Amino acid sequence: MNHSPVTDLSYEETGDSTVPGRPLPTGYRHLRHRALIGHGRAALDATGAAVLDWRMHRAAGVRITAEAARATPGTAVTCAIGLGPLRVGAPCRVIWTADGPDRHGFAYGTRHGHLAAGEETFLVEMGPDKAVWFTVNAFSRPDSWFAHLAGPLLPLGQRLFARRCARALTRIAAAAGS
């Protein structure tokens, strides 16, 4: 596992979403989503690559601009969410990665200018039974007047995004022959 020292994040609890089972920090909305996406090494390798090279995000409908073609600690990322002229940029920075042998993923934290403050981890793991699971572990709170105005729509959007990511990875796993 790799961690990156980061100074431009908009929250203090860096890394709290990266440890399975660790209680998420208070004062934030929490999201934990887990979905079975396939079985076997081919499914793990294909979905792990898709998480780390941003294909999962793109397949889930998010425009990604990143400093690197692959998630690595310290990489600045901007996710553009929304539709047409209502698309909003969400600046983040990769703060953690996991890459093998049975787990692949990353976490990014929000940077100043994001609608929310917090962190989100995306992880695919293969268990001893060869089942491949996708997990999203996140905490966030509104960090702008617009986000406060949106109220419960932001956590709803985050849950929908987690489900879209899981569906995208399920398709990628199936194409890999799981």
Rank of each mutant, 00 (worst) to 15 (best):
C165R: 00
R163Q: 13
D53K: 03
F139W: 04
R111K: 13
N137L: 11
L9M: 08
G100H: 07
R93C: 11
F146P: 02
N2R: 11
R34Y: 02
W145R: 13
P73Q: 04
I64L: 14
G61V: 08
D102G: 05
W145N: 03
P25W: 01
V77W: 03
T110M: 07
T170L: 06
F134H: 04
P128H: 10
T18V: 12
R32S: 13
T75V: 13
R163T: 15
G61Y: 01
M126P: 00
W54M: 00
H114D: 01
G151K: 08
G109L: 05
D102S: 11
W145T: 12
T47H: 00
G61M: 04
A150N: 04
T135M: 06
P91M: 05
A138T: 05
A173R: 03
G177R: 09
A49G: 08
N2E: 12
S144K: 01
T72C: 12
A66Q: 07
T14M: 11
R167W: 10
W54R: 00
H3K: 07
H33N: 10
R32N: 15
L149P: 01
L149N: 04
P73D: 14
L24C: 06
E67D: 15
L123T: 11
T170K: 10
V132N: 02
A43Q: 06
H30S: 04
G40F: 09
W54V: 00
R32M: 14
T26K: 13
P73L: 08
I64W: 02
G48N: 05
G157P: 12
H39K: 11
L115K: 03
M1A: 11
T121E: 14
M56V: 03
A68S: 15
C92F: 06
R63L: 13
S4N: 09
H33S: 13
W54E: 00
R70N: 01
G27Y: 07
E125C: 05
G127N: 14
A166L: 06
G21D: 09
L52A: 07
T78L: 05
R164G: 08
R111M: 13
V77A: 04
V124F: 10
F146Y: 12
H112P: 01
R58C: 02
P23A: 14
T14Q: 14
A131F: 00
G38K: 03
H104M: 03
W54L: 00
G105F: 00
A168Q: 04
G118V: 09
R55L: 08
P5E: 15
G40H: 09
R159D: 02
A35S: 11
V51F: 03
G118T: 10
A66D: 04
E120L: 06
I64G: 02
T78V: 14
T47C: 13
A69P: 14
F146H: 11
A59Q: 15
S144A: 13
T7I: 07
D143G: 09
E12G: 13
C79R: 00
G113C: 05
G48T: 00
A98R: 14
G15F: 03
L153F: 10
E119C: 08
W96G: 00
V19F: 10
L86G: 13
T65Y: 05
G74E: 05
T72N: 11
A80R: 15
L83N: 08
F122C: 10
D45G: 02
M1V: 14
Y11F: 14
G82E: 02
